[in-house]
Design a protein around this nucleic acid. Structure first.
Lengths: 354, 354
DNA sequence: AGGTATATTGTTATCGTTAACGGGATACCA
DNA sequence: TGGTATCCCGTTAACGATAACAATATACCT
């Protein structure tokens, strides 16, 4: 393995081309005040030596790295990974690189340490994409004091703080309203862990829909899961024990819905005839569940893209010394995807009802 | 939004503590030659001002950023996302930050551009985790000429190049041998896209197992999918048309196996009695398929961790000016997970046969 | 001719940090 | 007393680039 001993620097290019480093710099940055033939000569040398400006040195003097810090959780899950993908796409299109930090225990991560690390690397802005669990976001009040802008993803809005969310509550409402429209009256919910803000939001949506329809909201219909298929299976078993007239369930994610499907099958219930099931997320597999799963799709890629655009806007404003800019709250509406776990195959025309 | 105008620098700390910047630097880096009370005083100032050394400036002079470049593909899929997770864990434990670049079209990504970008940011090493598709890795011969070490993930081994793989061929063999041991004799395969090296490896494993068992290997039994559930569904339909005595299928990933399960159901076949199905990956949902899916588990997290450790070893060697270090090829064996898609529920004892 | 504008290039300082070296003070030894 | 070692700290230069300014040459105008 033979490596070039050192990188090529601007100095070497300057020497080789017989000009000053400043002139080379001007060529690199496409400044106008360079004679055409000089520019040409320098460009040739750059190409010949394979010179690449050091963005580290550049960052130092310009006070900006064109780097965003991303603090994420759960890339192995569908939503967060799509989210990261969207962030990367938009960042890359806007000329930003990403520094990635994945948190393993979102409920007790060392915020202080992570932020210091990011700031030491002079990121221009930070995307905080860790779910809000228990009190793990109490430090939010300090966010405006950070030397760089920060945007939160999927956390509770708060005045003066930039944020981008999918409207989980509205999603829960849509899922539940759909079940009601199918004539269901005893609608249970398998929630996510209730320490999660998003899980509570989805539950609120479920409750909204029931109340709007004048249906009773009972504790009896609520079971708390942990997002896993196993917990969905167990959750449905518990609901069925408690309430034999249960005719529908809103599972707060597709994995739990999958578990619930299995529990229904084992209990000898037909889906959707005896029991309708709605999920949340629309993972790619959902269309191939048995039966295919009705669910709520959220565009996490777009959410990531929007977050980067908003953060970039904040960065620009901050660089120009503007202090008047008010952080926005972005809210993305999810979408109901109807499949056979709520509507019997024969009734497919329902889909086109309106 | 009021931000601190500027960051605290070492100069301010030095001034405030009445020492030179060099002394502050010595305190930060825990050098021995500082008087205890001076050290104490400086530390207090650091704490009071909330000073954090700039790793940008540090990188510039030390010629090392403690940063790894990760070029990845498909974080929205299970394997790659776990892989990234493992990389991040190990890197973080070893004090490296990650710069992430996600490629969207792995078969025609701009390698040159990506590498230049990474090198401009002075990464200490690069992890290339983009699947090998068609000729998209022909540039591999230039890898040893890069100024920093590079390790490939999930690509064809090559002497002189560091690499870390799951043994896909062995996985394909295990899956197929398991089917043979179940008494199956007409075993089809739904492959991944055959432009993918990994897909071909899995197919080779299937062929190995058939040949070892003295079973005929026929083109008729091969259908090419595209990793999606839809292609798995269509794939099985085609296999069934071609060959009515088909009694088992190896689907080269779990999504395609899911599609195949649906196709089998629609064709009125019982799984596993009429048709046994094996997948590949062991996604978390696989255990909740209908029936639960036998599959090949690969530890992508561990693969990521190993890659980082190996890369770190190469970086250290490179920094010490060693040229003798020979890049290793890491090969991780996958594992067969037996579930009900190949073994009828009553026969569960099979699991403990040996 | 002299003055002013414009085009092109170079010089010096700077970003925040550390490497390399030097120098003063003290202690210890012959 | 002088020499040497050790401790502690400061000065200068450097990393690789750009900002700010200065300088030169040329062109153009009055």
């Amino acid at each position: 393995m033979n490596r070039p001993i050192r990188r090529v620097t601007i100095k070497q290019v300057a020497e080789e081309a017989g000009v000053s480093t400043q002139t080379v710099s001007r060529v690199i940055n496409e400044r106008p005040d360079v004679a055409p033939e000089t520019r040409q000569r320098v460009k040739e040398v750059i190409a010949r030596l394979g010179y690449q400006p050091s963005s580290v040195a550049r960052s130092l003097i310009q006070g900006r790295t064109r780097t965003l810090g991303v603090v994420g959780y759960g890339v192995e899950y569908f939503g967060p990974s799509r989210n990261l993908s969207g962030i990367e796409q938009q960042a890359s299109e806007m000329g930003y690189a990403l520094i990635l930090d994945l948190v393993r225990r979102p409920e007790q991560s060392n915020v202080e340490h992570i932020l210091r690390e990011m700031l030491a690397r002079h990121v221009d802005g930070i995307i905080w994409a860790v779910p809000e669990i228990g009190g793990n976001r109490e430090w939010v009040t300090q966010a405006p004091q950070l030397p760089v802008p920060l945007i939160f993803l999927s956390t509770q809005p708060r005045p003066g703080i930039a944020i981008a969310n999918v409207d989980n509550r509205s999603g829960g409402r849509m899922a539940t309203r759909h079940l009601i429209e199918q004539g269901r009256r005893n609608i249970g919910i398998i929630t996510g862990p209730l320490s999660w803000w998003e899980a509570r939001q989805r539950q609120c949506g479920w409750q909204d829909a029931l109340e709007n329809a004048g249906l009773p909201v009972s504790e009896e219909f609520v079971v708390e899961g942990d997002w896993s298929a196993a917990s969905g299976e167990q959750g449905l078993r518990m609901l069925l024990e408690r309430c034999s007239r249960l005719d529908a369930v809103f599972a707060s994610n597709d994995q739990m819905a999958l578990g619930a499907l299995q529990a229904a099958r084992r209990a000898g219930l037909r889906v959707p005839e005896d029991l309708a099931i709605v999920g949340f997320d629309d993972i790619p597999e959902a269309a191939y569940f048995c039966p295919p799963l009705t669910t709520i799709r959220q565009d996490m890629v777009e959410l990531g893209r929007l977050a980067v655009r908003e953060l970039s806007r904040m960065i620009e404003a901050s660089l120009e010394g503007q202090t008047t800019i008010e952080p926005r709250a972005i809210l993305l509406r999810p979408q109901l995807i109807v499949r056979e776990s709520t509507v019997p195959q024969g009734n497919r025309t329902y889909l086109f009802r309106r």
